[in-house]
């Protein structure tokens, strides 16, 4: 797999400056724009196009904290994905089950305010988890398999994201 940090020429870290990231993406996209290669030989045109696609893919990965964390872990040789990660803690599962049921109840009652309140609480949690992951990534040697310690929080982040996706779909449904 291609290293998205290398593709965009940014330092491999979790706490990336989003403005800097966007600037790198814009500069590279401009440099690789097909208009610049209009008169170039076919092989060169193809190459610049595939580079442009790579740059866009890398940007999408690095913009998303979940995929960015996964990319950092893969670089460090920590396996991520379905079977590789530790099972979620019973407490987290219990909590997510309860929150999702509350969300479903709020949807049935068409209680938009309750949906907002549930989503706000989870967004707050998401910020805390992101900050904690940032601290863990910052203190660990970026090439160490010790980074695996961040996996439970990455799992939690995915649960929170799932919840927020569901909540915004319901918000859209109830306000239309």
């Amino acid at each position: 797999m291609i290293d998205p940090f290398q593709t965009l020429g940014v330092e491999a870290r979790f706490d990336l400056d989003p403005d800097d990231l966007a600037r790198r993406h814009r500069d590279l996209s401009r440099a690789l724009h097909p208009d610049r290669y209009a008169g170039a030989p076919a092989a060169e045109r193809r190459l610049s196009l595939s580079r442009a696609i790579e740059v866009n893919d890398a940007f999408r990965v690095l913009k998303d904290p979940i995929r960015r964390a996964e990319a950092l872990l893969r670089r460090a040789g920590v396996p991520v994905g379905e079977t590789a990660e530790p099972k979620p803690s019973p407490d987290l599962l219990m909590e997510m089950m309860e929150r999702r049921e509350e969300l479903g109840d709020a949807r049935r009652r068409k209680d938009l305010a309750a949906v907002h309140a549930l989503a706000d609480a989870i967004r707050l949690r998401e910020r805390e988890v992101l900050a904690s992951m940032g601290r863990q990534f910052a203190v660990s040697d970026p090439d160490s398999t010790k980074l695996a310690a961040v996996l439970p929080e990455l799992g939690e982040l995915r649960y929170l994201r799932r919840f927020l996706d569901e909540a915004s779909a319901i918000e859209e449904e109830l306000s239309s």
């Binding site: 994905g81 979620p88 987290l92 599962l93 799992g155 649960y159």
Partner: peptide, 13 residues
């Protein structure tokens, strides 16, 4: 039984 898949954020009871 309460189980979950961390890679996709699924929870199943």
């Amino acid at each position: 039984g309460l189980v979950g898949a961390p890679a996709c954020g699924d929870v199943m009871r």
